[in-house]
Design a protein around this nucleic acid. Sequence first.
DNA 1: CGTCTATCTTGACATCTGTCGAAACAGTCG
DNA 2: CGACTGTTTCGACAGATGTCAAGATAGACG
Lengths: 132, 132
Amino acid sequence: MSKQPVSVLTSRPDEEPAEQSSGAALACCAPLAARARSTEQAAAVAPLFKALGDPVRLRLMSMIASSAKACVCDLTDAFDVSGPTISHHLKVLREAGLVDCERRGTWVYYWVRPQALESLGTLLGAAGGAAG
Amino acid sequence: MSKQPVSVLTSRPDEEPAEQSSGAALACCAPLAARARSTEQAAAVAPLFKALGDPVRLRLMSMIASSAKACVCDLTDAFDVSGPTISHHLKVLREAGLVDCERRGTWVYYWVRPQALESLGTLLGAAGGAAG
DNA sequence: CGTCTATCTTGACATCTGTCGAAACAGTCG
DNA sequence: CGACTGTTTCGACAGATGTCAAGATAGACG
């Protein structure tokens, strides 16, 4: 069976088009562009990983994803940290584009934005091609 | 394409069976254990995301995964940061269990440890129900 | 053995992060 | 309107992080 060949991890910046050694000018054309692209891509995706890089936020995401809509009060209850801290983490998650929220009366509900997760999933394991 | 419903994100800490909470002193029982487990899981996985949460490290991973074995010198050349900084990032990646390295003469080669990536991939998109 | 290259470790420093308490803001209910 | 509950913002602070320069270590080569 083909183990998921990861893929960000296998985005191989060098396999773009006519890649490699097609010209001595390697240091100036495609490769460079590819590399730049990779850099940008990394800069764009790293924040998502970073946002998920905190235990509290990871668990928060887990809880939010587990229920269609999660109320802040429920989330707060499940942690040992203060309300403001949870609020802060939710803001980080929100700014990373991982979740979105809406106010319904007194309560605020959060839900996961599938797009972001797909991005990560794709980066990590989907993307055929690669295979190492 | 992959419309899989993420999964860390859906690990629903409450769906754990009566996982023998033989610990007597448990304030409650299953719920607490389940939650503890979830917390532990988050604590265990967050570092992986965190390690990937830096653009340099993410790109480093990408490059390492792109080639069976990547030499530090090649990696260093591809970035604008100093050698020690690359070394530091590689250490972070190594300590997170994402990569491993070996010295061959003068050079040190790095490669990706599939396990870690699988963990992340599983967490993000695969894993059907809970954990397993 | 001495020297050179490649890589890692150490120490220092500015910045970012996670956390809290206090206060502000948003809505509901009496 | 006024009091109360839920959530976010503000200000502050300890600790973590990313980066560099300088020095240390590992192995190759003469």
